[in-house]
């Protein structure tokens, strides 16, 4: 139960509170470049989410078993060749990540082209662009930080947490870019001052969106308080009631944003 709560917090944190695009500024290039139309933006978002999930999983496996200091596999090989003490391959981190990303992009492209030609038509064109998308490398680095930087071995992230982070960070990216595309479709009808047309106005809109997303900061704290039973009181039924309530409130929150977005349209 505690584990599920933790996953939920990671999901909410990655998707809305610390949205990769609007708070960490990664994946800005597609955010500006491919946000002209909603359907294209959605395709890009799906492609990023897909690749991020695969790259996140692979990078966790490599980090945990090979790259981190005292990783089991690397140490075993090191000892096989007569080395002593723990191995540390962290100097290779970035090289490995970028190759994991590049090869997963390639794999996804081949797989989708072969088995889902119609899907390939809708978002295949974005796939090669994704290799240089900072958001995916950032997700890998985030996982690295959570694995290597943990206080105790028990707090080290496992595969489930890494996968949750990558999937929901991708969804957060999709959310941001689709909202942006929705606004930009309407902006085409507006009289924007000439120097600001294109990237300028997009960034100004992004500023307002970032302000809106900043309002989510701290949500996870209250979510956690609601989800973790207070040590003395809170019975199980009470807890379940609270949980569904929070789920509703978060839903209501997101709905509201969407409604506002539609309102803006």
């Amino acid at each position: 139960m505690e584990y599920i709560t933790e996953l939920l917090l990671i999901a909410v944190g990655a998707a809305i509170i610390n949205n990769f695009v609007l708070i960490y500024f990664v994946g800005i290039c597609p955010f500006i470049g491919v946000s002209r139309r909603v359907d294209m933006a959605f395709g890009m978002g799906c492609a990023v989410t897909f690749v991020m999930a695969i790259a996140g999983t692979l990078s966790w496996i490599f980090t945990y078993y090979v790259l981190r200091p005292d990783a089991p596999l690397a140490t075993a090989v090191y000892h096989l060749f007569g080395g002593e003490g723990p191995s540390d391959l962290s100097i290779l981190n970035y090289l490995v990540y970028i190759f994991v990303i590049a090869s997963s992009v390639q794999l996804v492209e081949m797989y989708v082209r072969k088995f889902f030609p119609s899907l390939y038509k809708s978002f295949g064109v974005f796939l090669p662009l994704i290799t240089t998308n900072c958001a995916i490398l950032f997700a890998c680095l985030y996982i690295l930080k959570m694995v290597v930087g943990a206080d105790t071995p028990a707090q080290m992230w496992d595969l489930g947490q890494s996968l949750t982070l990558s999937v929901f960070a991708g969804l957060g990216f999709t959310l941001a870019i689709v909202i942006m595309a929705g606004i930009r479709e309407e902006l085409d009808l507006c009289d924007v001052p000439k120097p600001l047309r294109g990237a300028g106005i997009t960034l100004l809109v992004a500023a307002i969106l970032a302000m809106a997303f900043m309002a989510f900061a701290g949500v996870n704290k209250n979510l956690m308080n609601l989800l973790t039973p207070a040590p003395a009181a809170a019975s199980t039924t009470d807890d379940a009631g609270k949980k569904s309530q929070t789920a509703e409130t978060t839903n209501a929150d997101t709905n509201e944003t969407q409604i506002t977005m539609q309102g803006a349209k």
Binding site: L22, I23, K194, P195, A199, L203, A207
Partner: peptide, 20 residues
């Protein structure tokens, strides 16, 4: 974060304006 977007947006606009 919003400050970063705002600044870059306006600076880009200013750059374009001067360029034009």
């Amino acid at each position: 974060p919003p400050g970063a977007f705002l600044t870059l947006g306006f600076l880009l606009g200013a750059g374009n304006w001067i360029g034009d």
